[in-house]
Each structure stands twice: as C-alpha cells, then as structure tokens.
Design a protein around this nucleic acid. Structure first.
Length: 567
RNA sequence: CGGGGCGUAGCGCAGCCUGGCAGCGCAUCUGCUUUGGGAGCAGAGGGUCGGAGGUUCAAAUCCUCUCGCCCCGACCA
C-alpha cells in the first residue's frame, strides 16, 4: 500500500474527548473516528488490525472444532419472551418496532436466536456435539459508553454457542474453548489472566473471564502470588477460619450519644475505636423485599456475593425513605439490635466471632457499644458477602493475594439447560428419551481486544503493535522522494516484500523525514526500513525494530531477505 | 438516572467574569527554499461561536430552555 493513496489521517494533537491511552492512540493513529457516543467507524488502518484479530480468532475456533455462522442482528421479541429475557434484560436491549408494529430487539447477544436454530435442526444425540460461532456487530444500549472501543454501544463480538448431550460433554467443550481462548490472546500478544467470574445476566453455573492486565481496566481481579488462583473480585472467596476462638462478652451493651456521626469514619473517630470494632448495617432491596446486610466497618459489601447467596435476581441499596421506614432512623444509625424479627438479615462471616462491637441504635444520633451476639441480638445467618482484600489469604493455597485491574476481553460460560429448557431445545438420546441440550457460550470483544492490546503495547511515541495484529508488517520510509536513487531503491524493496506476501506500507509522501518517522512510530508498524543517506554513502538501508528501537544496516539488495527473516 | 465538566475554523485552545471588528497555534491550498526526528519564508481560503428563545442600540459574552460530548457511580465483550 502506498501511503500517499492510503486514507490514514493521523493527528498531532489528542482530541479532547479521549481519556485513556488506547483511545487517544486509536484516534491519533487514524484507526477509528467517533460518530456518536459509543459508536465508532473503523478507518482502513484500524480495520486491518481488527481483521487480523478476527483471523486469529477464526483459526483457533475452527481448530477447536467450531463452525462459523452469521445470525441476524434484529431479533423478534417473541424469542426473547420465550427465554424470559424480554422482561429481564433491561434497557441495554434496544427495542424497536417495524412498520407492522411488531416488536424486535437489536441483538446484544444471541442465545435465543441460536437456540431457536438448533432446536429446529438438531433431533438426535448423533448430531451432538455442535459448536457454532459468529463474528458480528452487537448492540447494547450501555448506560455509559466510554473509553473509545473499550465500551461502545455498537461493537464487534465473536460469540460461540456449544451444544452437548450432558454436563460431562459440556465440560470437555468448555475446556477446549478455554484452551482456544488462551491461544487466541497469546497470539494477539497480550499479557492476560483467565479468572473465575460471575455469570451476570447471561446466566448459567460456571464461567471464566479473560482479563488483560492493565491499570485502566474496569474490573478488579484477585490473583494469588503463589498458585494460579485468579478470580474477579465479585466472586473471589474469602476464607474464614473454621476453628472459633473461645470469646465472651466483656462489656455491657450501652447506648451512646453520637450526634451527627453517620459514616464509619465519623463514628469510629468519635468513639475512639478502630473500624473493625464497628458493625455497619446496610439496608437493601432484593427482588422487592428489604434485606439487611451486616459487615465489619473496614469491609466492603460485595453485592454479587450477597445476591448469589440469597438467590436474588435483583439487588440495590435502599433509598433514604425506605431506610427510615425500616429502621426508624435516618441513614447512618441503623443496627441489628431491635430490628423486626421477620426481616431478612445476613451477616458477613467475619462477624461470627466478633464481640463487644459497636452498631447503630436505629435511633437518630445514637449507637450501641458492647453489643454481643445471642445476649443482645440473635445470631443472624452468616455468609461470605464482602470483597476480598490484600490482607486475606488465597482461598486455594493460603498464599498472598494481590489485587490487580483487568480489561475483560473474553468471557466463557457453562449455560447448562437454562435456554434449552426454556425454549424446548431437546434431543433424543440412545435410549430414545427426550433430553434438554446442554449449552455453553463463549464471547470475545474483538474491538476491545484491539484496544486492550494498545493499552498494553505502547510507548511515548505511539503504538507498538504485537506482530500478529499489526495493520502492516513493514513500513518503508524513503526520506527524500525527490531523489531518484532513493525512490528507486524503496520501490524495489517494496515490490520485493509484496512479492513475498509481506504486508508493507510505502511512505511515498512528499514529507520531511521527521514527519515520516513520527507517523511510523505512531501507527506502530513492527519493522521500519529507512532509505536515506546510507544508501548513497554505502548502498545500505536500515531496518529498525519498533519495539526495541534496535537498528541494523543491510546492503540494499539484501533488505527483503533480511526483513522477512526478522518477522 | 444521580454528581462534575465542556461545546468558538479539520484538531488543540484563547476571548465570556466586566456586552462593542471573532482571534492564536497546528492542519489545508499556492509558490520558492529545505530533506535523518512533527522545516523556513511569502501569500490564500476556511466560522449560522452546538441549537432555540429572550434582554439590549448592540450578544460568543447576560438570562431561560434545549441538544450533544467527556469524566465519576450501577451494567458488560
């Protein structure tokens, strides 16, 4: 490709809208442009990289036995009503009507469509296993799109759906997908970690997220520094010692005046206690009913864990009026003592052995000190409902936990029979019995993978593309296009590389050397061949490695050979 | 949806408080010079100041409404 004819508008300055490095560089390198919030156009350079990633995904999916399909983006509401998600999915599902007033959703994911397809065609255990995938545009009307390709409303996703006879067979498919995902992200040049994860709105029993480690990641993950345990903090278990120390109350329960002290910090400072002596009481609404969660003052409630342990669909903090109605006091003075007996109360397991603690008195400007279980307040149900911290041990090996940030580029789920049962996707087994198909689903954010790769591979001059996803493999920079010798040499090398199938960008623009160097660095092409003064002096050209900056000089007629060796 | 910020030339911004010719840098176009890290000189083009309404002799500037964009929270590939 000749740069002078290539639609590649690079920017010297960073557009004001971009915050994180991948977004800035994608814009500056002329790879994407914004149409509206969460909606981006891919320009030729960006599309080339995107296609590289898609290519890697296709190869690995096909190798793992999956087959590519292409499903409609517009999906009839009836299908979503069958699975029950028409009502449950929420506003991320963009709903629209056609001219006949029939309702449709713009596909945020394709479980319903694929299950419908498969239930019509698959009748026998002989047809299984089956694994179908597509690479296609998804639409999710996100509450807050941000960070360029990182969280768009319209985005490109690879989604795969597997169909197996039973859980055992699903396990095998799941492992094959797990391995395929590892290979995909390795080939994309990413430093990533597979982590145990929550299943969210997709449903199912087990799942792993593939996290690219980056400080700008939106997710937090807990990694063990000794073993290979890693989990999304939403899920990471907190281990509670099983041997309980023999502890007894040592102080009477006393009501104290705490004027205007609401937050953990205000109360603990006022009373001169540490925050692990305080039990904070959070009022939530779970599936329409109030739930009280108790936690140590220095711990944070993990709503995902609470939701899972209570088997709730929906969970939210209660508003101030509800808190007032339930506890009889404004926010900041709630406590377990004297709450109505029929109220669902759940305490974090770390409170089990706590004695002489402080809580709100369900009365404005008052707390209790010296509160103890059994004596002052009945023991509630205990469960692991808080976030893991770096002070907690690894739940697998007891080692040290490190909290890191990650970008979720892939997510795999064991769905089980959730969709097949709801939608009647069954097969006949060898004994002629009708059984539900056991499903799995597997997603990769393709654009997000590109953004994550840039997030992890850049320097102050621009992108440093991993080889396999670079838009071009080589850029040739003839430094003076008015010099016939230089132009001729550059053209020769260009033709030589193209003849070998090496994707090459020839910077034939009438620009000064500095401009060409800056643009080449910005767009991050792995190898740059400089044709300049050394050609005239020694008949040599230079090959520079973008990642290391290392440069070698080679005779002009060996440039093609040497370059292809270096790739 | 709640909180914060921003809309002025393609991009980055100043001007707004205190109303009075719409500006700067980069980019673009022409010519000459220059050619190893975002060149120099000379010239040129480009604006409904996000939109609507209002106040005023006069509005980018003040007021009201509205639309869009970005950041922080809940959602997710």
């Amino acid at each position: 490709m000749r740069y002078s004819r290539f639609f590649l508008p690079t920017l010297k300055e960073v557009p004001a809208e971009a915050e994180i490095i991948s977004h800035k560089l994608l814009l500056r390198a002329g790879m994407i442009r914004k149409l509206a919030s969460g909606l981006y156009s891919y320009l030729p350079l960006g599309l080339r990289s995107l296609r590289k990633i898609e290519g890697i995904i296709r190869e690995e999916m096909n190798r793992a036995g999956a087959q590519e399909v292409l499903l409609p983006l517009v999906q009839p509401a009836e299908l979503w009503q069958e699975s029950g998600r028409w009502d449950r999915y929420g506003k991320e599902l963009l709903r629209l009507k056609d001219r006949h007033q029939r309702a449709y959703g713009l596909g945020p994911t394709h479980e319903e469509v694929i299950t419908d397809l498969v239930r019509r065609e698959v009748k026998s255990y002989r047809d299984l296993p089956l694994n179908l995938y597509q690479i296609q545009t998804k639409f999710r009307d996100e509450i807050r799109p941000r960070f360029g390709l990182m969280r768009g409303r319209e985005f490109i996703m690879k989604d795969a759906y597997s169909f197996d006879v039973d859980d055992e067979a699903l396990e095998e498919t799941y492992q094959a997908m797990y391995q395929a995902y590892c290979r995909i992200f390795e080939r994309c040049g990413l430093n990533f970690r597979p982590v145990e994860a929550d299943t969210g709105s997709i449903g199912g029993h087990a799942s792993h997220e593939f996290m690219v480690l980056a400080d700008t990641g939106e997710d937090q993950i807990a990694c063990c520094t000794s073993c290979d345990y890693a989990a999304n903090v939403e899920l990471a278990e907190v281990i509670h010692p099983s041997d309980h120390p023999d502890v007894r109350p040592s102080r009477p329960m006393t009501k104290v005046n705490t004027p205007g002290r609401r937050s953990v910090r205000e109360v603990t400072e006022f009373l001169g206690i540490s925050s692990d002596q305080l039990v904070k009481t959070l009022i939530l609404i779970g599936d329409g009913r109030p739930v009280v969660a108790l936690l140590r003052g220095d711990h944070e409630l993990n709503e995902v864990k609470l939701r899972r342990s209570l088997g709730l669909e929906d969970l939210d903090l209660a508003d101030s009026d509800t808190v007032q109605r339930i506890t009889g006091a404004p926010i900041g003075f709630a406590g377990p003592v004297g709450l109505p007996g029929d109220l669902k109360i759940i305490a974090d397991q770390d409170l089990f052995d706590l004695t002489d603690f402080v809580t709100g008195a369900n009365e404005v400007d008052a707390h209790y000190t010296g509160v103890n279980w059994d004596r002052d307040v009945p023991r509630p149900e205990f469960a692991d409902i808080r976030f893991i911290t770096e002070k907690d041990p690894c739940p697998r090996c007891g080692g040290e936990i490190e909290l890191r940030r990650g970008i979720e580029v892939g997510h795999i789920f064991k769905l089980g029979t959730k969709y097949s049962e709801a939608m009647g996707a069954t097969y006949l087994d060898a004994d002629g019995r009708e059984r539900p198909i056991v499903m799995g689903c597997y997603g990769i954010g393709v654009g997000r993978t590109l953004a994550a790769a840039i997030e992890q591979n850049h320097d102050r001059n621009g992108i440093v593309f991993p080889r396999h996803i670079a838009p071009f493999e080589v850029i040739i920079s003839p430094l003076n296009v008015k010099d016939a010798l230089i132009v001729e040499a550059a053209e020769d090398i260009y033709n030589g590389l193209m003849a070998q199938g090496i994707e090459t960008l020839l910077d034939d623009r009438r620009e000064r050397p500095g401009v060409k160097f800056k643009d080449a660095d910005l767009i991050g092409i792995p190898l740059r061949i400089t044709v300049g003064k050394r050609l005239k002096e020694k008949n040599e050209v230079e090959i520079m490695d973008r990642a290391t900056g290392k440069t070698i000089s080679v005779p002009r007629d060996r440039a093609v050979e040497k370059t292809s060796e270096m790739l």
